[in-house]
Computed example of a mutant assay.
Amino acid sequence: MEAMTASGIDYTIFFYNPNIHPEHEYILRKEENIRFAEKHHIPFIDADYDRDNWFERAKGMEWEPERGARCTMCFDMRFERTALYAHEHGFPVMTSSLGISRWKDMKQINGCGERATAPYEDVSYWDFNWRKKGGSARMLDISKREKFYKQEYCGCAYSLRDTNTHRRSRGRPAIELGKEFYGYEEAHEDKK
């Protein structure tokens, strides 16, 4: 949001994440977005939790690896919906913060965004590199300051399954949804 403000972009948060599973996780993530939007007076659009459609589209891709065809399908679905909304409501540009994560392929994300906006002459995709100039470190600083919920997997049921499998193979416990928040570990360290 700082980068968009610095670039003169007036923005709105469009929350469309039918991939997030289970519903408890979806609600946690949505509420964090709403809390931040309200605190900073940012317009917030809550799109449908279209999970049945997402699972239908994911059929046959349940075992695709992270950054594979399932992720492309997921980005395409979400960006297509965003581009349509932007077109129908007069938003000339759209972007996504997905690229801030080192776990994501920026070329894959940007390709999906560009494909989604291609049918609309009045909407373009801003392919800003969120990782440059300390973007990832800035994201962590903001997450700690805001005490954001710590998302320990991408969001979909298959990412949760695969992340937990990896954690168990390393002797770590499974993810406990709704338990980890940024900033709280530092507060506990300071009290020691």
Rank of each mutant, 00 (worst) to 15 (best):
S96G: 02
I175P: 06
A47F: 02
D48G: 06
C71I: 10
A83T: 02
K191P: 00
Y184I: 12
L84P: 01
R70W: 05
E56W: 13
K59Y: 03
P173M: 11
V93S: 01
A58Y: 09
K191W: 11
K39N: 12
R167A: 02
Y158V: 04
K191R: 10
M4H: 03
M94V: 06
A118S: 06
D76P: 00
I109Y: 01
A47P: 03
V93Q: 02
E66M: 15
R78W: 01
I13F: 01
K144S: 15
K147S: 03
I9L: 07
M77F: 11
K107I: 10
D127M: 05
F36K: 09
I142Y: 15
I34E: 13
S136V: 09
K107Y: 09
N53D: 09
L140P: 06
F181D: 02
E32C: 13
S159F: 05
K191T: 05
K150D: 05
R138T: 08
C74L: 13
A69Y: 04
M61H: 07
H89P: 00
H40V: 00
I109K: 02
T117F: 01
E2P: 11
G8S: 06
Y85T: 00
R145K: 15
D105P: 10
F14G: 01
T12W: 01
Y120G: 07
D50N: 12
G99H: 13
F148W: 05
I42V: 15
L28F: 08
A157G: 04
A86V: 00
T72A: 06
W103Y: 12
E31W: 12
K191N: 03
R102W: 06
A37D: 09
I42W: 09
Y26W: 13
N33Q: 14
G135W: 15
R35M: 08
K144P: 05
L177W: 15
F181L: 12
Q151F: 09
M139T: 04
E180C: 10
Y182K: 10
H87F: 00
A58I: 03
R170T: 04
F181K: 11
N53F: 15
N53E: 15
D50E: 07
I175R: 09
G111W: 10
K59M: 08
H188Q: 09
V123I: 14
M77L: 15
N129P: 04
W126F: 10
Y120I: 03
K133R: 14
T163A: 07
Y11W: 14
I100C: 06
M73I: 15
Y153E: 02
D50G: 03
E66R: 12
I45G: 06
I42D: 00
M73W: 02
R57F: 07
R145C: 09
Y26E: 03
L140S: 09
I45V: 14
K179R: 12
E25N: 08
W63E: 09
G68V: 04
K59L: 13
A174H: 04
L177T: 11
D48F: 11
E121H: 11
E186D: 03
E80T: 08
S143A: 14
G113S: 05
Q151C: 08
I34V: 13
